[in-house]
Nucleic acid binder design. Structure first.
Length: 234
DNA sequence: GCGACAG
DNA sequence: ATCTTGTCGC
């Protein structure tokens, strides 16, 4: 798939913030989805004391959630982790991975936030704008904003507000477990994003997309036969 | 000025 | 993110 090159990556935080404010204006927060046949999970891991970045993408058939395609790429780490600028550290490697995919996904599920961000431009928004694809942010911990307590039932959720604005939601995907944080990245509204995340979630806290990509990016090497295709995470 | 701070 | 022991529950 082809990805737009809208700006350089070797920027300081001042310049990066300008890029974020500029591109945030392009983000679409209403549904402009194509029929969903493939859902991609994206995650990044690190090796060798953070000097090597590993970007993984797992494309699952929807709604069966079996593996349709996957890719894992490694490249030198070029940007430090700075809250608010995660995409400048992880997106370059993710782009390398997406370009090598054989199956083009209809939507991207990113490990990290979308509009749950100081400037409303988290990594899911950045990937959505660069690829032009619908994108959703799926985070494990809160970042900015507050929300009321969640009911302890599967599927319950509460809006997250920041500066008089609803920017995402805390979603309980499993009883007795802390919620995950969902926010739109691009071409999708919050309610649809939550619904889709729940449809991709089976018996675990994280949706299957995240579980696959996380295992590829951070887990031990996976035997070829286990990745042959059409399989379910075990 | 002080505290908080996605992965 | 990564490292890493012990512990609780199905």
């Amino acid at each position: 798939m082809h990805i737009r090159k809208l700006h350089p990556w070797d920027l300081d935080t001042k310049q990066a913030a300008d890029v974020q404010r500029e591109l945030a204006a392009e983000v679409i927060l209403t549904d402009r989805l194509d029929p969903i046949e493939y859902v991609a999970g994206i995650d990044v891991g690190y090796e060798d004391g953070n000097t090597v970045t590993r970007a993984a993408v797992a494309v699952l058939n929807f709604p069966s959630l079996t593996l349709a395609d996957w890719i894992l790429v490694k490249r030198p780490t070029t940007f430090p982790y700075i809250p608010g600028y995660l995409s400048f550290r992880e997106v370059p490697a993710i782009i390398d991975a997406l370009e090598q995919l054989k199956v083009t996904p209809n939507i991207l599920f990113c490990d990290g936030h979308g509009t749950i961000h100081p400037r409303r431009f988290g990594i899911a928004c950045h990937l959505g704008i660069l690829t032009g694809l619908p994108a959703v942010g799926v985070g494990k911990t809160p970042y900015v904003g507050k929300h009321d307590p969640l009911a302890d039932t599967k599927g319950s959720w509460q809006p997250i507000r920041h500066k008089e604005e609803v920017i995402g939601a805390a979603v309980r995907t499993r009883v007795g477990v802390k919620p995950i944080y969902v926010s739109p990245g691009h071409r999708i509204c919050l309610e649809t994003a939550i619904s889709l995340v729940l449809k991709c979630t089976l018996g675990y806290k994280q949706p299957e997309t995240t579980r696959w990509s996380h295992r590829l990016a951070s887990g031990p090497p996976i035997p070829e036969e286990k990745l042959a295709g059409g399989l379910t995470l075990s």
